[in-house]
Structure formats: structure tokens, C-alpha cells
Design a protein around this nucleic acid. Structure first.
Length: 930
RNA sequence: GCCGGAGUGGCGGAAUGGCAGACGCGGCGGACUCAAAAUCCGUUGCCCGCAAGGGCGUGUGGGUUCAAGUCCCACCUCCGGCACCA
């Protein structure tokens, strides 16, 4: 009768833990601490996906394991609840986003609790909670109040920003705008993708080929006032401080590439006047050698950035971006119409079009030339959209002979290709293009220098003559931080209005005590005819504010979804604090996060943004450690069940998979109609017809989504947890298999029967359970299991830990007597993996609950050693026999035992032994001759 | 194109340079049962062989080593990410 029924024991123990506060974390750790964090989910309307419990189970096992080892564990959960889906749902249905979000959070909470995770639910938060929004806005105020001091590489209060005398001279307004220009949070006109037909701004990835992804409506790029965060100021620290983190090398590299540091030189090319060019150039040169290189280029120079200043003598054109500020000035009258047309066309293209589709390079000659600073020769200036306005100086020197892109451009427009670098010996130089490093030729005084020496020398020379300087650039851009959306955090910023109600351009931040700025009540979430954010249609009593006799309008953009997830790990530590965002003593005690597990899709953005905010908070003294996440692990994706796909021709007959064409129709083939034939899978009834076998990403459209609720109903939460851990290595991508779940369920059933008498009417101990002393074999088996499971949890190798526990159960099942002395420790180590079952078995064994915080059993090293071992004997590297020797036998003893083996003796008879390799405890190998 | 990651039985996977295939699924056989399910026991890489035994095996081709799934070189396939950053 009392079979294993997860559906009754799981809710029972969840309620017990809840009622007893088993996993409540104290304010401050007592002794050793560990902070184990999951990437919190976006509560989508679809509910939990089987991908979520993968990482969550892994962290839960570690959290429970650490608790049992006496560590104080911080293991919280919350919700990243702002976001687009809720807003689009609101537009479609009129349901306020807060309502649908709260409903979704309730579903997620139910599902997470159903899986028995040991979160301290007293700390749960959602980024949409007004009290959370309050502190997100407060951190924005910190960013707004901070400037970056490049000399010390540190963020400092804006009040400490040195104001140049000439700015001070212009009065308070100039000082204020000088400050605004240096804040980490600043406003800027940035182009956005505006789709008039849809009445909304689109993200870059929502625009395909110049039209909207949905509906195919035209999209234009429109400059719009945006909030930006000066993450570029921290580029260097974000890169160098990666080194100390225990993160996967691949993630570090991804971040490093994203930051994209490069070194080279900036060089100014003189823009000559219409007449007297030579004299003007000479005068400019001499001015520059006295004044040095100015930090901002004047209107008389075109400033470029290059990573290869050693190719300066190979420049045959200058190319500037269509948005370059000097484009107008450089355009001659006769070229103006075509330049205008080009610029117009470029402005309509999204970034994606400009990069992805424009394989063939386009461009237009401006009609003007600039003067080469080293040769004094004129260089024609072109405009082309392969040069990006947002990188470097928005202008380049084109060296067709030594840069692939410039080479393509030169070929399209017939520009000269001048070779100035020769490959070092042994390197091949192909078709006039050589982008590698080498030795300079035809380069004036630099001829003969290697690339490295050339760059060093020319950098120094340019600096000495004021024509250029060595420079560093980053691919990383400042973070576009505003969205024209409703469902996000409002900015704590007011725009001053004049008498007529127009913005004066002056802004002021709210005081911390005025926070939070809550979202107004809107009934209409639909986008309008202009890119104005929905909040611009807020009721006047929200929108307009009077302060100190002045009238202000609130900022109506909202923050992006990333904002809330940038600091949630900090708020978890002190979630109910109404005085501060986080008590410093608490922060100091718990930070940094010791283990952070989540999907690799956040490898760059979330993790980079969080690190950036954290560093600002660190610089401003609000946190004590420069990095938030010490150790990071990415769980792999869980794919749908393996599928076989066959192809049918339009006529209906099967087509072998490797020959199928566009007209053929793919169809799913049941597993039992397929068999393996050599390298490939084929149809059982038509063995020459190959079928594809593959697991696909779970998606609604493919219909291969596995629902956790259903798995729990059918197999139980412990089975789901255990299966997800048993599938394979945590980091690997792996396909779902329902029979795999039932296999793991079978293991839990066997654990149950190990302890419980399944045939009794009431819950009772199995009659084999005994109080007798365990045998040596029993203890060996137990301690080896404890040892392996302990080490595997430490190494996050849950699949092999589970395999070892299965071996233990396989060992115990046939025993006539199962000593409690080995069953009880086993139940203890099972607890982190299958906590509900373990609690139940613990109770059946008559132990006081909860096993969840029982002491982790110690390994007795004595039982890890064998008295004797069976070792393989090889001849010529091939396995020829096995001998049993004492575990501590030395090489000679092993060799003697091997030679004594009749089979080995036979093989060695008449041969000369050239060498014997004997590794104690491992093997013996005879190398023979003759 | 560039950068990662991975290729091991029918399937998921295991293996500090030292017995390849632990553990699980699936298959096969047996016990229990009137029967079935459930459970328990055994077996299961491929080929030759009645057997004893032998041969072949970790994507392909080379190499290092007494010994390679593991290290080195070249290549193939799949998956993921990035994509004109001068």
C-alpha cells in the first residue's frame, strides 16, 4: 500500500519547511558564509519552462549541501518583472501591465515552490515593487551625480569636478551644462528606429532590410533625445578586472571582445583653404609643433583613428561616415546633390542593413582633399557608410593595400593601391592586399622598420610635432538607457519649463526623499503618432511639478529592463530596508556572490551592465568590493526530445535526407520506423532513405515544449530535479528524454523500497532495515559514496554524483540486512538532490526532522583504501591479463606477480624484455622484442 | 568570414596520459504470476567462433609516448555566438 507517492509527500514537506522557517537566512552570517544566486526569471505568461529548474536545482543542491556543512547560506529568489511582453499584452487586451505581471509572478512562485527549492522566501522581490523601483531610481541619481576622473580611473561626486576657468567665466548656466556633459548619466540625441505605421520605436533586431519585422512597414532613423550611461568610461576597468574572476574563459573572452580595446594612433589631416593651400599648411604645421596636439580637433582638420599608423604612407583616400560633422564643410558645390542623396539613403538604413547587407561597398567623393601630414600631398575625401560615425573619430585613412575593407572600397571606385608593407620572409602576399604585419617600404624615414617599431616611432614623432598621438579605442558604446515605453522605471528627473511651457534645457534631479516616482495610472497603452513615450500622455498632476517657484515636466522616458537586474543581488541582502538601498554592514558580510548560475545568453549585456553599476557604487563607497560575482557558471540549454525528420517529394515518395530539395516536405518519423544503418539513420522499410536525427530548441511553434507542471504531476518534483541533474554536465546542451525521467523515478522508487516496506498497509520500515553493525563491505560502499558525492557537488558534477548514489542503492537492494548505520548517512547525502523523499525517509527511519539541515556525513578515509587491487597486465600495450596484488605493492612486486601469471609467462616465453613499465596501483606493461 | 563549444554503443552520458563504455534509458533472457503490470536476478560495443579464444573499436588523416578518447599538427561535420569597430 504505501508506495512512493511524491504528490502527497512533496507538498507536505514544502509546508513543513515553510512553517518552520527551515531556510530563513539570518541578517548576518554566523561563521563561514556563502552567497548562492540564480539569475532571476522574467515572469512570462507561459509560466516556468524546464530550462529554469536546471540552474535552480544546481544552485539548490549546492545551497542545501553548504547548509549541511554548517555554512550560513544566502539563497534568494525574485522576479525581473518589467519588460515588453507585459506591455504588449496591455496594448492588446487593455489589462494594466501590473495586473498581468502580478498574476504571472503568482504562477511562477507556485511553480518554484512546487519544486522544493530552499529559497528564503522572506527575501523575495520583484523589480516592479515600488520600494525596489525607489532604490533603482536612487542608483540612477548616484550615476547622475558621478563623473569619471580618468586620471585616477575612478567615479567621483559631480561637486568635485574641476570647472575650467573659461567655463566659470560664463556663469552658472555654463557650469551646470559643463557638469551635465560629464555625468555618468547624460542626455544625448541618438538615432532610433521609428516606424510611423506601427507608431512605435523598434529595437535594431526588430528591423529587417529597412522595414519592420512585423508587418513590413518602413522604418526611419530619427534622432531622439535619449538618456545614456557613460559605461565607456569604465571600459578599461571592466576589461582588466575580469582577470581576477572565476568565470568561464569563454565568457570572459566574449566580454573582452565586446569591450573591444584596440590601440593605434590618432592623426590630424589639414583641411586646406581654397587658396594659398601650401602656405596655410606650412603655417598650420609650425603652429602645431608649438601648441602640441589639441584634445579636440578644430574645424581645420580631419581627425582619424588607425590601428596601423605604420601604413600612413599607403593612404590613398580619406573616408568619413555619412554622419560626420565636417561632411557639409568638405562637400563641394558640384558634389552636393549626390552627397545629399547618399546621406539621405544612409540615414534610412538601420545599423543592421549597413553592416549585414551592404557587402558591396558604396560611397561618394566629396570633391575635397586634405593634406597628408607626413608627405604634404593631397588626399581625396570620400564619404562611405562602411565607416561608422560612432567609433573612433568617425573618419579613417583608407589604405587599400593593407586593409581588406579599404581594398574592396578602392576596387569599387578605382582608387590607387599603394603597397608600403612587405611581409616578412615566409609570409605570402596575395593579390595586392596584405593585412598582416611586416616591414615598411617606400615610407620615407621609416622605411625598413618592422610594424611594431614603426608604430612606436611614428607615435612619438606625431606627438612631438603635434600632428597626432598614440590612442586607444573601444568598441563598447555608451549605454542607451531610455525607452519610449510605459512598463519600466520612470526617471527621477525634472525638465524645467519656461513661461510658455517649453523646456529650457535645464534639468534637475529629484531628492532621494522624493522617491519613488511611481508610474501614473494610464488606461491607454497604445503608441501614438510620434515617438513620444506613453508617459507623455500622463495626467497633468503626474506630469507637471512645481519646485521652488519653477514649473517642471517629468522625464517621460522609462528605464530599460536591464536596470532592475543590475543590482537585485544587492537588495536581496537587505530587502526590507526603508532607510538605505542596503546596510553597509550587511553588504560587507555577504558580498560578493560566491556562485552565480544562469544562461549564457546574459554573457555580455546583463553581466557587463551589472559590473558597471557595481563599480560605480564601489567608487562612491556604497559597496565594499569592486566586482559583484566571484564565480559564474552557465547552465546549458535543454532541447526538446530527439526527433527524426524524413522528406517527401511533392509526389509523395520518400526522398533521402541528404538529397532533399526545397520542394520536398519535411515530416516527423516515429522512432520505431527508423534504424541506424552505418553512419546514418534510415527508414526501416526503405533502408536507402536516410532521415535526419536531431533535437531542436524547445518552442511553441515546434510543439516540443515540456511543461514542468506536467512532469511534476506524472513523476514528482524530486524526479524532475534529479533528472535535470542526471541528464549530463550542467554546462552542456542536452536533449530532453521522458524515458530518462522515468528512469530516475525508478531510482527514487528503489530508494523508497530500501527503507519502506511497500507491502505493509501502513508506513513501516522494510524488514531488512536493521540495527546490526555494518560489514566492512557496507562501510566501504558507504564511504566511497559519501566521498564521491561530496567531491562531485563541490565540482558541480551532479550527474556523476547521482550515478554513484545509484550504485549505492544497487549495492544495498539485494542485502538481507540493511544496517541503519549506512542507510541514515545515505539519506542525508540524498537530501540536497531529492529533498522531499529524503525528509520522508528520514522520518520513517525515526529521525527528527529536518534532514535538510542535518550534518553532512564525514568520510572515513580508512574505507577508501583497498587491501588488494586487481591490475591490468599489458604486453606491447595490449591488455593480456590481470593479476591481484596488495594495494601497496611496489613496481618489483607487481612485475613479479605479472610474470608469475601463466598466460603472461607464455606470451613472454622466448622473448627479450626490453622494458617493463610498472605503475604502482595502476598497471604493468611489458615491452618485448623477438 | 571570425570566435567559441562539441563529435565515444541503438540513445543520454562516464573515464588524474594507464583495464574505453561507470550510471541510466532501450533491448534480450530468467524468476514471481492463471496471466499481465509492477518488482527482483542475469545479460547487452561490433565482428569471427559451438567454445576456449581472437580481431576491431572514442569524427578523419598524421605525429609524440612503453601506453592516447585524453597531448601535438592538419582536416571534416554539427551546435552556439559575433559580424565592415579602421
Amino acid at each position: 500500500m504505501p508506495r512512493y507517492h511524491p504528490s502527497s509527500i512533496e507538498p507536505k514537506w514544502q509546508e513543513w519547511w515553510d512553517a518552520h522557517g527551515t531556510f530563513t537566512t539570518p541578517r548576518l552570517p554566523a561563521g563561514r558564509k556563502t552567497y548562492i544566486l540564480d539569475m532571476f526569471p522574467y515572469p512570462s505568461g507561459d509560466g516556468l519552462h524546464v530550462g529554469h529548474p536546471e540552474g535552480y536545482t544546481a544552485t539548490d543542491i549546492v545551497a542545501r549541501f553548504e547548509r549541511m556543512r554548517g555554512t550560513t547560506v544566502m539563497h534568494p529568489m525574485g522576479f525581473d518583472a518589467f519588460g515588453l511582453p507585459a506591455e504588449e499584452h496591455a496594448i492588446r487586451t487593455g489589462t494594466p501591465p501590473r495586473e498581468s505581471t502580478e498574476r504571472n509572478i503568482a504562477t511562477f512562485t507556485r511553480q518554484l515552490k512546487m519544486l522544493g527549492f530552499s529559497y528564503d522566501w522572506g527575501r523575495v522581490l520583484a523589480t516592479t515593487d515600488p520600494e525596489y523601483v525607489r532604490w533603482t531610481q536612487w542608483i540612477f541619481l548616484v550615476l547622475f551625480d558621478t563623473w569619471f576622473d580618468h586620471a585616477t580611473q575612478k567615479g567621483r561626486p559631480i561637486a568635485e569636478l574641476p570647472i575650467p576657468a573659461e567655463v566659470t567665466a560664463k556663469g552658472a548656466g555654463a557650469i551646470a551644462s559643463y557638469r551635465d556633459d560629464h555625468r555618468l548619466a547624460y542626455q544625448s540625441e541618438a538615432p532610433v528606429n521609428w516606424c510611423p505605421a506601427l507608431g512605435t520605436v523598434l529595437a535594431n533586431e526588430e528591423v529587417i532590410g529597412g522595414v519592420s519585422e512585423r508587418g513590413g512597414h518602413p522604418v526611419i532613423r530619427l534622432p531622439l533625445r535619449q538618456w545614456m550611461l557613460r559605461i565607456t568610461a569604465y571600459a578599461e576597468r571592466l576589461e582588466t578586472e575580469l582577470a581576477g574572476l572565476d568565470w568561464p574563459a569563454s565568457i570572459k573572452k566574449l566580454q573582452c571582445d565586446w569591450i573591444g580595446r584596440s590601440t593605434g594612433a590618432e592623426v590630424d589631416f589639414f583641411i586646406p583653404p581654397a587658396s594659398g593651400a601650401d602656405e596655410a599648411f606650412a603655417a598650420w604645421m609650425s603652429r602645431r609643433s608649438e601648441s602640441g596636439y589639441p584634445s579636440k580637433p578644430g574645424a581645420d582638420v580631419l581627425r582619424i583613428y588607425t590601428t596601423r599608423p605604420d601604413t600612413l604612407y599607403g593612404v590613398t583616400a580619406m573616408v568619413i561616415a555619412p554622419e560626420h560633422p565636417l561632411l557639409d564643410a568638405l562637400t563641394t558645390t558640384e558634389q552636393r546633390p549626390s552627397i545629399e542623396a547618399y546621406r539621405e539613403a544612409a540615414s534610412r538604413k538601420s545599423d543592421l542593413d549597413r553592416t549585414d547587407l551592404a557587402r558591396e561597398k558604396t560611397g561618394v567623393f566629396t570633391g575635397s582633399s586634405v593634406v597628408h601630414p607626413l608627405t604634404g600631398r593631397p588626399v581625396p575625401v570620400w564619404v562611405a557608410d562602411y565607416v561608422l560615425a560612432s567609433y573612433g573619430t568617425g573618419a579613417i585613412m583608407a589604405v587599400p593595400a593593407h586593409d581588406e575593407r579599404d581594398y574592396e572600397f578602392a576596387r569599387s571606385f578605382g582608387l590607387d593601391v599603394v603597397t608600403v608593407i612587405e611581409p616578412m620572409e615566409g609570409q605570402a602576399s596575395g593579390n595586392g592586399l596584405f593585412a598582416g604585419e611586416g616591414r615598411a617600404i617606400d615610407s620615407g624615414p621609416y622605411t625598413g622598420l618592422s610594424t611594431r617599431d614603426f608604430i612606436a616611432k611614428v607615435g612619438a614623432d606625431l606627438e612631438a610635432t603635434g600632428l597626432g598621438r598614440p590612442a586607444t579605442n573601444y568598441k563598447l558604446r555608451d549605454w542607451l538607457f531610455s525607452r519610449q515605453r510605459f512598463w519600466g522605471e520612470p526617471f527621477p528627473i525634472l525638465h524645467e519649463l519656461d513661461e510658455a511651457g517649453h523646456p529650457t534645457g535645464s534639468i534637475r534631479a529629484l531628492e532621494p526623499h522624493e522617491l519613488p516616482v511611481s508610474l501614473p495610472v494610464l488606461t491607454d497603452f497604445k503608441p501614438g503618432d510620434t515617438p513620444d513615450p506613453p508617459l507623455s500622455r500622463s495626467p497633468a498632476d503626474w506630469l507637471f511639478v512645481d519646485r521652488d517657484g519653477k514649473r517642471y515636466r517629468r522625464e517621460t522616458n522609462t528605464m530599460p529592463q536591464w536596470a532592475g537586474s543590475c543590482w537585485y543581488y544587492l537588495r536581496f541582502l537587505d530587502p526590507h530596508n526603508t532607510e538605505r538601498f542596503l546596510d553597509p554592514a550587511i553588504e560587507k558580510a555577504w558580498m560578493p556572490v560566491d556562485l552565480y548560475i544562469g544562461g549564457a545568453e546574459h554573457a555580455v549585456l546583463h553581466l557587463l551592465y551589472s559590473r558597471f553599476w557595481h563599480k560605480v557604487l564601489y567608487d562612491r563607497g556604497h559597496v565594499s568590493h569592486p566586482e559583484p560575482f566571484g564565480k559564474l557558471v552557465n547552465q546549458g540549454m535543454i532541447l526538446g526530445e530527439m526527433e527524426f525528420t524524413g522528406y517527401r517529394s511533392p509526389a509523395g515518395g520518400w526522398v533521402s535526407a541528404e538529397k532533399h530539395g526545397d520542394g520536398d516536405v519535411a515530416s516527423k518519423v516515429p522512432h520505431d520506423q527508423v534504424e541506424k544503418h552505418g553512419e546514418h539513420f534510415v527508414l526501416r522499410d526503405a533502408p536507402t532513405t536516410r532521415v535526419e536525427s536531431r533535437a531542436y530548441k524547445m518552442s511553441k511553434s515546434r510543439g516540443n515544449v515540456v511543461n514542468p507542471d506536467q512532469v511534476v504531476r506524472e513523476f514528482g518534483a524530486d524526479s524532475l530535479r534529479l533528472y535535470e541533474m542526471f541528464m549530463g554536465p550542467l554546462e552542456a546542451t542536452k536533449p530532453w528524454s521522458t524515458s530518462g525521467v522515468s528512469g530516475v523515478r525508478g531510482f527514487l522508487d528503489r530508494c523508497w523500497r530500501l527503507v519502506v516496506d511497500e507491502r505493509a498497509d501502513e508506513i513501516a520500515l522494510a524488514h531488512q532495515v536493521s540495527d546490526t553493525q555494518p560489514s566492512d563491505d557496507d562501510l566501504r560502499e558507504l564511504h566511497r559514496t559519501i566521498d564521491k558525492v561530496t567531491r562531485d557537488i563541490e565540482g558541480l558534477s551532479f550527474n556523476t554524483a547521482i550515478a554513484r548514489m545509484m550504485e549505492f542503492v544497487n549495492y544495498c537492494t539485494p542485502l538481507d540486512r540493511r544496517p541503519r548505520a549506512i542507510l541514515e548517512p545515505f539519506v542525508t547525502i540524498l537530501a540536497p538532490f531529492a529533498p522531499h523523499l529524503a525528509e520522508e525517509l528520514w522520518q520513517v527511519l525515526g529521525k527528527p526532522a529536518p534532514v535538510s539541515i542535518a550534518t553532512w556525513p564525514a568520510v572515513d578515509e580508512r574505507w577508501l583504501k583497498d587491501d588488494s587491487v586487481e591490475i591490468p597486465v599489458q604486453v606491447q600495450g595490449k591488455l593480456r591479463g590481470r593479476v591481484v596484488v596488495p594495494a601497496d605493492a611496489d613496481a618489483d612486486a607487481m612485475k613479479a606477480a605479472a610474470v608469475a601469471d601463466p598466460k603472461i609467462a607464455e606470451l613472454l616465453a622466448g622473448k627479450t624484455i626490453v622494458k617493463v613499465v610498472a605503475v604502482p596501483g595502476r598497471l604493468v606493461n611489458f615491452v618485448i622484442k623477438g
